[in-house]
Write a protein that binds this DNA or RNA. Structure first.
Lengths: 226, 226
DNA sequence: TGTGTCTCTCTTGTATCTATGATGGTGGGA
DNA sequence: TCCCACCATCATAGATACAAGAGAGACACA
């Protein structure tokens, strides 16, 4: 009843999914950078499947704006647009604040449960932060923010927010690395966000989130223009 | 250099695009309602193409959350979730307000140009509103709101907002119809939104937008529970 | 040397074919 | 009568075959 595209790996991942993961990883990790051209055949060969599932993967990646397909010519990796970091951060801020305003419509019990879940994801960040394990931290960070949005119950927002994650990862792969000393600070800032939610203080949440994202954004900008 | 998926119809639309348009229309227009099952073969036959391009169309529709594919079983039209109207409206509000806050960072000349463009789309609404041409109005309405977001220059937001349009159309097809007398009111409210932008009054814009969407939402809810 | 054209190759778009999983109905047994 | 196993059917997943568009580069000519 459940399909195989949900990330749970009990089944030996369908060919299309393998092709998708493979290509997505190539892009998100930065090994394939913006403007680079790839062909279905090439990926098909490397993954060991026919072109059909690769085509499906490419279509998915195009839907996620990571790839752009040019008819009869090939696929190019969509380059990170100049203002994209700012774009992503603004949308994240808007959606997360929306989510929190919605969260606060929950009654105390439900909110407490949400807060508890968030604190769990917080704890999951400490390890990677202390180990300066940037990739793991990036995943945990993403999971944390997504958890806030998911808790709000707006499925549309959640899905969109999730798709922003890939773009974020792609940028983070370049940007977070140079500043691993910030990881613990980020965990702390996340804690403050949860506190604000727990205390039903929207204004404080919004302010803290803005500061948090501003700092991330500044880190990005700083890393990009050294 | 331009691909054939951009809606310009000089070329005899690719098979995949025809299949996509056909199926999307079926869903958005409500002729195919939530939960209904369709198969690639069925659409392939009706459109007169093979299953391959239909498959591509289905994948695109799945990416847009209009269709859900179940491996080896078929595709079901994603039903309108109970709270979805509210979800969409909240996101629209958040993104549009974000867009306007960003618009107001433009200098006076640029802002004036944006306002002029918006007023043009306003004029395009009057005709359909007077004629009580609901489908045409729905398109114009969508174009208006999208224009605000597009003008902000956040490409990500624009794309996402656009994708909300289909869902909105789908709901509007059911909801706006019963209240054609509201169309002219909506045009008027749109005018107020533009005025707020022109006067750089964010607070007023946000308030007016909320009222505008609330009214739409109430109209929806009223239409759904008669 | 510069330019226009022509072809050759690469890549996608579509069709078709095969394999396999899912489902629902049927019939036998408890 | 009810339940379970089996099988026919159907739909997709993936592979392969084929056609056609787009570009790069060779080549002829001015």
């Amino acid at each position: 009843m459940e399909d195989t595209r949900d990330g749970s790996e009990r089944a030996p991942l369908a060919a299309a999914d393998r092709a998708y993961e493979f290509t997505r990883e190539l892009i998100v990790s930065g090994r394939l950078s913006g403007g680079e051209l790839i062909s279905e055949g090439e990926i098909a060969e490397r993954v060991g499947v026919s072109r059909t599932p690769v085509r499906e993967a490419f279509l998915r990646l195009q839907a996620e704006e990571l790839l752009r397909l040019f008819p009869k010519r090939g696929a190019v990796v969509v380059p990170l647009a100049p203002g994209e970091g700012e774009d992503v951060l603004e949308i994240r801020e808007a959606i997360e604040c929306l989510a929190v305003r919605r969260l606060l419509r929950l009654d105390d019990d439900d909110l407490a449960r949400v807060v508890e879940r968030l604190r769990e994801t917080l704890r999951a960040q400490s390890g990677p932060a202390r180990r300066l394990d940037t990739p793991a931290f990036a995943r945990a960070d993403q999971a944390f923010h997504l958890a806030i949005v998911a808790a709000s119950g707006n499925a549309l927002a959640e899905r969109f927010y999730g798709s922003l994650g890939d773009r974020q990862l792609r940028m983070a792969a370049q940007a977070l690395h140079p500043r691993p000393e910030r990881l613990e600070v980020l965990v702390h800032e996340h804690g403050a966000l949860v506190d604000a939610i727990a205390q039903r203080d929207v204004a404080r949440f919004e302010e803290a989130l803005r500061a948090h994202l501003d700092a991330t954004h500044r880190a990005l900008a700083a890393a990009r223009r050294p």
